[in-house]
Design a binder for these strands. Structure first.
Lengths: 134, 134
DNA sequence: TTTTTCTGTAAGAAAATGTAACATAGTTTG
DNA sequence: CAAACTATGTTACATTTTCTTACAGAAAAA
């Protein structure tokens, strides 16, 4: 049960971690700057990494290889799910100062026009999904 | 049960999707280029988006707001878990042509040195995690 | 003393978006 | 219907941001 402790025990120097992960020291420091890891420090200010740090760096490495950027890596490592978006999470911007009611009116009028595209009569049915709830 | 069908039915024009999502046409086209969405086309080559497309774009939008890049978004939307890394997924590179055995030897010698940092006697225990399996 | 590591800064590459030019589709109106 | 708009499409180039690499000087560790 002190596994948690053992895994966060500071053990590895920068040089070793470079070899273990294949990341450069500069990269590792950069990731620390961006709060992806938080290695301990010696009295002399050298970083000392734990197993957790190393494993996290290995995860980071594999995500980097996929081209995922730091923000993405943060997201994945903290595995926030994508917040489920509401029935319709309309973004206002531009037409910014519309009231919700106005916005809905706008959408309805726009959407009615959508009829031109496909000729599916089901459009009416879809509207209910957007407008008939709440 | 034809919900699936309804949700993938092409309904929305580019302009409407811009308003619904707050993304620019340029962005939306770029995401299509990168295979995040696959809107249908009219005979005249205009894009027509489904509900699924719009919802995906809303997810993309919220990830973008977090600073996640396309690779990251792809990863999240397909929600691949980070592949669990093996007990020690050593990266060779640089010292590239070592055999696995040589590499293990190298790691052991390096790791033994690690003792200098912390003075925790538990290091020996940790080694087993790395070397005593398989 | 020699080797590592630290911080900071600058230069370079790549990703994402903006912008502009010009063609075609679809809509609206006289 | 035909002329006039407006929305979209494609392509190419410019700009911004993010990440990596390289370098310099100082301190720590061997």
């Amino acid at each position: 049960m002190d596994d948690r402790l053992r895994r966060s025990m500071p053990l590895f120097s920068m040089g070793i971690v470079q070899n273990l992960t294949g990341l450069t020291a500069r990269q590792i420091r950069y990731y620390e700057e961006n709060a992806l890891i938080e290695p301990e420090r010696t009295e002399g200010n050298r970083r000392v990494f734990s197993f957790n740090d190393v494993e996290k760096l290995l995860d980071i490495k594999s995500l980097l290889d996929e081209g995922v950027n730091l923000a993405g890596i943060k997201h994945v490592l903290s595995s926030k799910p994508v917040e489920a978006n509401q029935p319709l999470n309309v973004v206002k911007q531009k037409k910014s100062d519309l009231s919700d009611a106005d916005l809905m009116k706008y959408l309805k009028s726009e959407l009615i026009n959508a009829g031109k595209f496909g000729d599916q009569a089901a459009i009416q049915g879809e509207f209910s999904r957007f407008f008939n709830q709440k």
